[in-house]
Simulated scan of single mutants.
Amino acid sequence: MTDASEEHDDNPNGVKPIYRLKCVVVGDLGVGKTTLVRSFAEGPRTRSITAEPKSMWQKEIKMASYIVSLSIWDTAGQERYRSLTGSYYRGAHCCIVVFDVNCLDSFQNVKEWFQNMDENSTNPEEIIKILVGTKRGSSSRAVSLERAESLADHLGVSYKEVNFGSQNNIRELFESLADLTVLVYKENNFHSNIPVELPQYQQKKTYCSCG
């Protein structure tokens, strides 16, 4: 099995390989998807209701032995139609499904979002998924932690919560998801491989676990 980190070890300049990942973020309207993405990609102080709307953010994450160039795709209002086309999921390596712990309806629609992904993705079994509950302030929650974790177990994914007030766990969420995605793709013979670039040669390569 070819390992991009092995290529890095053979590089006398010690330049880290860059893995290019596409991450899609889905969930009901108003659960905080854009706030979540913007807080990570641009920092908490840049959050503003007057900020220009975007559907994609680019963020670089530096790991110990490699770098992840993460393209994060927001639904930009398309979620109101309860259906996202295959073009949105095409090429996705990982996905964050978001609900609001203070909104029971958004939690009850989680399974529908997973189904939407399965129906519209070319290789849904290859997308690394995570369920995320968002919290705002100290309002009484409508969905208990135990209930959220139980649903995540049923869906076969991990569960994390983020608090927009404290910005708790937001950076950790994206970094751990990116790290897990690279690890899983490197250990499995997936059809949709991750583009890899070795900067010093300006040569783009594609990681393939079949060699």
Rank of each mutant, 00 (worst) to 15 (best):
M117D: 01
D118F: 03
E119L: 07
E119W: 04
E119Y: 10
E119M: 05
N120H: 12
N120T: 11
N120P: 09
S121T: 11
S121H: 03
S121K: 03
E125D: 15
E125A: 13
E126L: 10
I127E: 01
I127K: 04
I127D: 04
I127A: 02
I130R: 04
L131E: 06
L131N: 03
G133W: 00
G133N: 06
G133D: 05
T134Y: 11
T134A: 04
T134I: 06
K135M: 07
G137W: 02
G137T: 02
S138D: 15
S138Y: 00
S140I: 08
R141L: 07
R141K: 13
R141G: 01
A142C: 02
V143G: 01
S144V: 06
L145I: 06
L145P: 13
L145T: 13
E146S: 02
E146Y: 08
R147L: 05
A148Q: 03
S150L: 12
S150F: 07
S150G: 06
L151N: 07
A152E: 05
H154L: 12
H154A: 03
L155G: 01
S158L: 04
Y159S: 07
Y159F: 04
Y159L: 05
Y159T: 10
K160G: 14
K160M: 15
V162A: 07
V162N: 10
N163G: 10
F164I: 08
F164N: 08
S166K: 04
S166W: 00
N168K: 10
I170V: 07
I170R: 07
R171V: 13
R171D: 13
R171S: 15
R171M: 12
E172M: 09
E172D: 15
E172I: 11
F174V: 13
F174D: 14
F174R: 15
F174N: 14
F174M: 11
E175W: 04
S176L: 09
S176Y: 05
S176R: 14
L177P: 10
L177T: 01
L177H: 06
L177E: 04
A178M: 09
A178D: 11
A178S: 15
